[in-house]
Write a protein that binds this DNA or RNA. Structure first.
Length: 271
DNA sequence: CAGTGGGCCTGAGTGC
DNA sequence: TGCACTCAGGCCCACT
């Protein structure tokens, strides 16, 4: 589920509300993708100083250490007081003086990891190889272009890989390529300057727009207040196989790349 | 070394 | 109604 916009929308929905809170208890359900690291009891008494985002990770900063939260494919967070008793898919509760932060994740591809800091080997392993932040100032066309050109991997998979730029997942990769007029199968190294410029701009444009719209709710995504996103209704190609292209009317095509589906318009995306 | 594909999990949907 | 199968927003890692 959650790509960069959903994670950012989630962050914004509870960062203020949790700031300054002190952890009073931790509850864990079934194991998640990675172990918490240490005893949950070590979190009790810590206070939350803020919430940042790096790629698709949320970094819950504590007065000592940091909590890395990843939503995987099916995760979502809630932050509220008086949450109901945990259900079978609520696998982590951080109970604080200002409310409970709860991770709901049926597929359990998500994780909550407690690390001493970002430099802690456990955290560094997860955050180390990440590419540029697309919504930050370091996301220059120059660096992006160099990163992309260095590989012959199809551009769709290059974007998903996160080594050059983070946060572009399966939905937004298709949308970004549509706006840039590039086919998903195009080898990264074969993208020339004109299309590279459009691709770079489209990444920012699509992700910013998605954040404004609260992300995409395909099935069950909601932010920490329980609100749904609406970007999916604006998708040009994702999930629209056979439907007419919103620009030219040509039926949208689907294909599979590395076990993931990609969608594109054969007319608007010529090569 | 770059690149591909399996695997982690559960639930929803489809076709028989 | 039940079963077998496919697919779903991500990402690590073993293999070629």
């Amino acid at each position: 589920m959650p790509e960069l916009p959903e994670v950012e929308v989630t962050r914004r929905s509870f960062a203020q509300a949790i700031a300054g809170a002190q952890v009073t208890a931790v509850r864990m359900g079934k194991p998640l993708r990675w172990p918490l690291g240490g005893d949950g009891g070590a979190l009790v008494g810590r206070s939350v100083s803020g919430v940042r985002r790096r790629g698709k990770y949320l970094l819950v900063d504590l007065d000592q250490g940091v909590l890395l939260v990843h939503l995987g494919m099916s995760g979502s967070l809630r932050f509220a007081q008086g949450l109901p008793p945990p259900g079978p898919h609520d696998h982590f509760d951080l109970v604080t003086t200002q409310g409970t932060l709860r991770l709901h994740d049926p597929r359990r591809f998500g994780a909550v990891v407690h690390a001493a800091g970002e430099a802690d080997p456990v955290a560094a392993k997860l955050l180390g190889g990440l590419g540029m932040e697309p919504l930050s100032d370091d996301f220059s066309l120059d660096a992006f272009s160099r990163g992309i050109k260095a590989s012959r991997v199809p551009i769709k998979q290059m974007l998903l890989g996160g080594k050059v730029v983070v946060g572009v997942g399966n939905i937004y990769a298709s949308e970004v390529l549509f706006l840039s007029g590039i086919r998903p199968q195009t080898p990264s190294a074969r993208i020339g300057p004109a299309r590279m410029g459009r691709l770079h701009a489209a990444i920012r444009q699509v992700l910013e727009r998605a954040v404004e719209l609260g992300g995409s709710t395909l099935k069950d995504f909601s932010n920490a207040d329980g609100a749904y996103g609406s970007y999916q209704a604006h998708a040009n190609v994702y999930g629209r196989e056979g439907a007419p292209c919103k620009v030219c009317g040509t039926p949208i095509k689907a294909l599979r790349q590395g076990q993931r589906s990609s969608y594109f318009c054969p007319r608007c995306q010529r090569a």
